[in-house]
Structures are given as structure tokens and as C-alpha cells.
């Protein structure tokens, strides 16, 4: 009994702390779900995504970024980051050009035609005129995805399933005082969801597409454990 009170107190404190953190700072939403900028860059040659990531890291430093391959033939990338400045974009495209842009009619001190597939490293070290102009680009503004829109598909089916479950629980555990059992079930699920969200908020764990199904898994597991517990109580009453 004493342990139960301590657990309840701890959960209440945790939830209050979570509410405060959410109120002050909000959730740490993954930047890909938040409004962010992106630049698309076409690479004709085979490339490793890790190479593009290295270049992006050298430009963005500590800033969060994500490189995604676009187009079916793996010949273009989309580099996403929070608030890409023009300077960063220029720098990024210039570095990508150095790495991937094929050199057309490069100036050759030997008077021979250089290979058009000259690597960026060599382009950097050779005459600067080898890459005549930077690839044109556009900073694309990607609006945010509202967290509610991730939650929205779950709402109607969860309400329908919830109502049916409450009716079932009400009938099944009549002997255990249905109203109490239903309130306990709703309370348990509400508290556990709030507690998980509080932990996520306090630890600044990023909100990604994985969070919601994980909460769903916890709720389903709790539902099973709750029913197993009620079945035990029911069995004891029947045996008495």
C-alpha cells in the first residue's frame, strides 16, 4: 500500500514536470517533421550517400541534417536541414560540384584534354577555372507536419475500440463493480500515456514517427495485463 502511494506520487510529479517542460519548451519534434529547408542536387555518377553526408556535415557542422535519395534511379539527393542560409547553400553546392560535377573542357596546362570525369579532389587542386559555374539551386521550404495529423488516423478507431472495450469490461467484470473497473482502466491508460509523454518531454527524446506506435504497444500491453489482473480477481470471487 505504501509502495503504491509512492508510485502514484512519483507518477504525478513526473506528469507535472512533463507538463511544465511541454509548456515551456514544447516537445523536441524531429526536425524532419518540423518546418525545414532542403536543397535538391542531381548527381549523375554513382555515389555513396555517406560521401554526401560528409560534405553536408562539413557545411552544417553541429546543425541537424538528413540526406535523402530522390528519384528512382538514385541519381539525385535532397539535403534537408533546419534553416539553410544562402551562404550554407552556396558552400554546400560548391562542395558538391567539386565532388560530383563533371568538368567540361577544363584548362589543361599540358595542352591536353583532361578527362571529363575528373574527380572533385583533382578539380580543387587544379586550375580553379576547371569548374566554370556552380550548379543552380533553390532552397525549398518544407512546411511542418502537425503532430495532430500523425495522431489523427488513430482517433476514430481508438474511440470506437475504446467504447466496445468499455462495454465488454463493464459486462465481464460486473461482479467487481463495473464502474470502478472502467474508471481504473481509463485512469491507468491515461496516466501511463501521460507518463510516457512526460518522459519523452523531459529527456528531450525526439518525437518521430516511431513514438506513436510505441505508445500504442504500451497501451495494448497494459490492456492485457489489466484484464489478466481482473480475471484473477474474478476467479477469487467465484472461488469464494
Amino acid at each position: 500500500m505504501k509502495n503504491k502511494k509512492i508510485i502514484i506520487l512519483a507518477l504525478v510529479l513526473l506528469i507535472i514536470a512533463g507538463i511544465v517542460v511541454v509548456g515551456l519548451k514544447g516537445f523536441n519534434v524531429d526536425f524532419m517533421l518540423k518546418g525545414h529547408d532542403s536543397i535538391e542536387y542531381k548527381i549523375s555518377d554513382d555515389f555513396k550517400i555517406s560521401d554526401v553526408e560528409d560534405i553536408a556535415k562539413s557545411v552544417f557542422g553541429e546543425k541537424k541534417f538528413k540526406v535523402r535519395i530522390i528519384e528512382l534511379f538514385n541519381d539525385a539527393v535532397s539535403i534537408n536541414a533546419e534553416n539553410i542560409t544562402t551562404e550554407e547553400a552556396d558552400n554546400l553546392v560548391k562542395k558538391l560540384d567539386n565532388k560530383y560535377k563533371k568538368v567540361e573542357n577544363p584548362t589543361d596546362v599540358e595542352g591536353e584534354n583532361a578527362e571529363s570525369t575528373e574527380t572533385p579532389e583533382s578539380a580543387e587542386t587544379s586550375d580553379e577555372n576547371t569548374i566554370t559555374e556552380t550548379t543552380s539551386y533553390e532552397i525549398i521550404s518544407n512546411p511542418k507536419i502537425k503532430i495532430f495529423s500523425l495522431l489523427k488516423p488513430f482517433i476514430i478507431p481508438s474511440i470506437i475500440a475504446g467504447i466496445i472495450i468499455i462495454i465488454y469490461v463493464g459486462f465481464r467484470y460486473k461482479k467487481l463493480k463495473s464502474i470502478n473497473v472502467i474508471l481504473n482502466l481509463i485512469g491507468l491508460i491515461a496516466i501511463s500515456v501521460l507518463a510516457i509523454l512526460s518522459v519523452i518531454a523531459i529527456t528531450r527524446f525526439p518525437i518521430t514517427i516511431y513514438v506513436l506506435p510505441t505508445i500504442m504497444l504500451v497501451v495494448l500491453s497494459e490492456l492485457i495485463l489489466f484484464c489478466a489482473n481482473q480475471e484473477k480477481k474474478l476467479k477469487n470471487i467465484n472461488e469464494d
Binding site: A161, R172, I224
Partner: peptide, 10 residues
């Protein structure tokens, strides 16, 4: 399965 009825509903 008595315990799993709510999961079956979901």
C-alpha cells in the same frame, strides 16, 4: 483468450 478479448476488439 478471455484476457485477449480487448486486443481482438482493437
Amino acid at each position: 483468450y478471455i484476457t485477449l478479448v480487448p486486443i481482438l476488439i482493437v
